[in-house]
Write a protein that binds this DNA or RNA. Structure first.
Length: 268
DNA sequence: ACACTAACCTGCAAGC
DNA sequence: TGCTTGCAGGTTAGTG
């Protein structure tokens, strides 16, 4: 599920609720997600104040004086803040309590993770590419990185070593808006088209953040409500439906083991 | 170095 | 009704 806008939405929702609050208790209800959640997390964090919440790619970083908690939402993760006495929901695996409030990670498929690191130097963060919403990410960057890349353009923009945060939904949408066929090889795309693509990736991600992200199945905002960007999707999940631009038919095919949706008339 | 595959999980919807 | 199949927002270890 969660791509950059959903993680950013989560960060923005959490910040006013728990920042500068002191951890009173950490509880693990299930310690095996993608990785094992450190069993001693409670003894590490108890009594420490949460200083900041930031995002790097699709990772959430909870900063404490003694180190950072790294959280990834995987495919089906979401975080909410509730009264600590509220009954657990199925797949609530991890919670950090701040007085009478509890921040809970729910993740049915358990592809997410919760880790502790003394600083931001961490294996999971070290090799990440640029943030798409910064000035570093532009047509020159994409053009330079794509020389000799035979892989298709969709895999290229979803590669976290190139640019972080662009997942399957927003990759499909950005390519549609840019009129680029997802099957094109990255090396064959001109600098002019990369200019359009980089601009559209930024715009779409920003619009999705404004809308509170895209809710398909599992994702919710921290108050449990849904993001409504799904109403704005032009191709993702719209197989056999009508293209909003040309009235042609939206096609779906499997690419890099993921569903790709595109309009063959519009995207060349 | 690059490109592609399989695997990790649960839940839901469609088809029979 | 119930079984089977396919599919879902991500990432990475392994293979050629």
């Amino acid at each position: 599920m969660p791509e950059l806008p959903e993680v950013e939405t989560t960060k923005n929702g959490l910040t006013p609720l728990i920042i500068n609050k002191k951890i009173t208790k950490v509880v693990l209800h299930r310690n095996k997600l993608r990785f094992e959640i450190p069993k001693n997390l409670s003894s590490i964090l108890d009594g420490h104040t949460l200083r900041d919440i930031t995002r790097r790619g699709k990772y959430l970083l909870f900063t404490f004086d003694i180190g950072i908690v790294i959280v990834h939402l995987g495919m089906s993760g979401s975080i909410c803040v509730v009264d600590k006495n509220q009954p657990l929901k199925k797949h609530d695996h991890f919670e950090m309590q701040f007085g009478n409030k509890s921040m809970r990670l729910n993740d049915p498929r358990r592809f997410g993770c919760v880790l502790f690191s003394k600083n931001t130097k961490h294996k999971l963060l070290d090799n990440l590419g640029v943030e798409p919403l910064t000035n570093e990410f532009d047509n020159k960057y994409l053009f330079d990185k794509s020389r000799n890349k035979k892989q298709n353009i969709k895999a290229f923009i979803m590669d976290n070593k190139i640019v972080v945060g662009v997942g399957n939904i927003y990759a499909c949408e950005a390519l549609f808006q840019s009129k680029i066929n997802p099957k094109n090889q990255a090396k064959d795309i001109s600098s002019e088209r990369y200019k359009i693509l980089s601009k559209n990736i930024k715009t779409i991600l920003q619009q999705a953040i404004q809308a509170g992200g895209t809710t398909l199945q599992d994702f919710t905002k921290v108050d449990g409500s849904a993001g409504y960007f799904s109403q704005k999707l032009n191709v993702y999940g719209r197989k056999n439906q009508t293209c909003v631009v040309c009235n042609g038919k939206i096609m779906r095919f499997i690419q890099n083991q993921r569903s790709s949706f595109y309009c063959p008339q519009c995207q060349k």
